[in-house]
């Protein structure tokens, strides 16, 4: 079931979907871009949007989230869960790398422990993907089994074919939504041919690469090479940017706020790059900076694949674009002193 829609009708389409869903679209707050609740009219993101600084994981795993609030009594506590908004959500325009990142996060949040905070939001959300026509010079998704037009992890996929978007239903959720949407035209064979051509052009625009062949073994073989890791991490300043903004990083910290017997338990993003990581329950086992940066690289390219059979990096390039010292993970992966 392939449809198409005029770009100038996107506002109407979103209005229609807005009846059923809370809609989230790329938006700008100053220079900071993220997915925020649609204001009911502005679709100017279609002109400027390449990808957001804040990854869409924030819609499911926000930087700060109330887990519950409580009242402290004499010998007991009364706990109350936050009211669930129960709202059905639709994220419009998620990029293939970020949709893949959600699929990667699903694995950890559904693993030994099922995380109700993440999963309830995830199950209630429809993802409408938008293929990239203008990848950044820091994008390298094509090295990680995805590409700028990849529809594998969304419910509905849009491809830019000039004045229109080709619209494909990918999942059952997507199919039923499209079936219930009015104002769409059927795509012709010529439209599909145009989409294919556009997808091939986009694919060629991604020029950054990493070689992932035997990457687990290669990382393992140089794990103990302190000189190498020290040298390539010397300029890192141990901030939280690359991990917080990584669409697949999921570490969190838990803190209580207690004011006059009324308390809130929060969880918030945490990062293995920060020296204070895990200081509360124990010591940080990675005291040195080179160990922390190594952890970040190995977690994504060695440990996650060992556990879940997928590399926990989608090549979105945020860690490269946003790093204050321009540290580049692809350079590290290309320069590993492999011992065979």
């Amino acid at each position: 079931m392939t449809k198409k829609i005029n770009k100038r009708d996107i506002g109407k389409l979103l209005t229609q979907w807005n009846q059923e869903f809370a809609i989230f679209v790329p938006s700008k707050e100053g220079d900071t871009t993220k997915m925020t609740s649609w204001d009911g009219k502005d679709v100017s993101f279609l002109d400027w949007y390449r990808n957001t600084v804040i990854p869409p994981k924030a819609s499911f795993f926000p930087p700060l989230e109330e887990m519950f609030h409580f009242q402290k009594n004499k010998g007991s506590y009364d706990l109350e869960l936050p009211a669930s908004d129960g709202q059905k959500k639709l994220i419009f325009g998620i990029r293939p790398c970020d949709a893949k990142a959600l699929a990667i996060l699903d694995m950890i949040f559904k693993d030994a422990y099922e995380d109700p905070y993440y999963l309830s939001k995830r199950e209630n959300t429809v993802l409408v993907g938008l293929g990239c026509t203008n990848p950044y010079d820091s994008c390298f998704c094509t090295s990680l089994g995805s590409n700028p037009s990849d529809s594998a992890n969304v419910d509905i996929m849009l491809t830019d074919i000039g004045d229109q978007f080709l619209m494909e239903a990918i999942t059952d959720k997507g199919k039923s939504l499209i079936a219930n949407t009015s104002g769409l035209d059927d795509a012709t064979e010529a439209d599909e041919a145009r989409a294919k051509e556009a997808q091939e052009t986009s694919y060629r625009k991604v020029t950054k690469r990493v070689d992932t062949k035997d990457i687990e073994e290669r990382l393992l073989s140089c794990f103990e090479d302190q000189d190498y890791w020290e040298k390539v991490t010397a300029k890192c300043i141990s901030c939280g940017i690359c991990t917080f903004l990584c669409p697949t990083c999921y570490c969190f910290d838990i803190n209580d706020e207690l004011v006059k017997r009324q308390g809130v338990r929060f969880r918030s993003w945490d990062s293995c790059a920060l020296p204070i990581y895990t200081k509360m329950p124990m010591e940080n086992p990675r005291e040195e900076k080179w160990q922390r940066v190594r952890q970040k690289v190995c977690h994504k390219y060695e440990f996650y694949p060992m556990n879940f059979d997928v590399i926990a990096c989608t090549g979105c390039g945020r860690c490269i674009r946003q790093c204050p010292v321009n540290w580049d993970i692809t350079q590290i992966l290309a320069s590993l002193p492999v011992k065979v």
């Binding site: 930087p63 300043i237 901030c239 939280g240 993003w269 920060l274 204050p324 010292v325």
Partner: peptide, 11 residues
């Protein structure tokens, strides 16, 4: 908007 990445402090 602050995400407490501490980049401001660490640079």
């Amino acid at each position: 908007r602050c995400i407490r990445c501490y980049a401001c402090r660490n640079v």
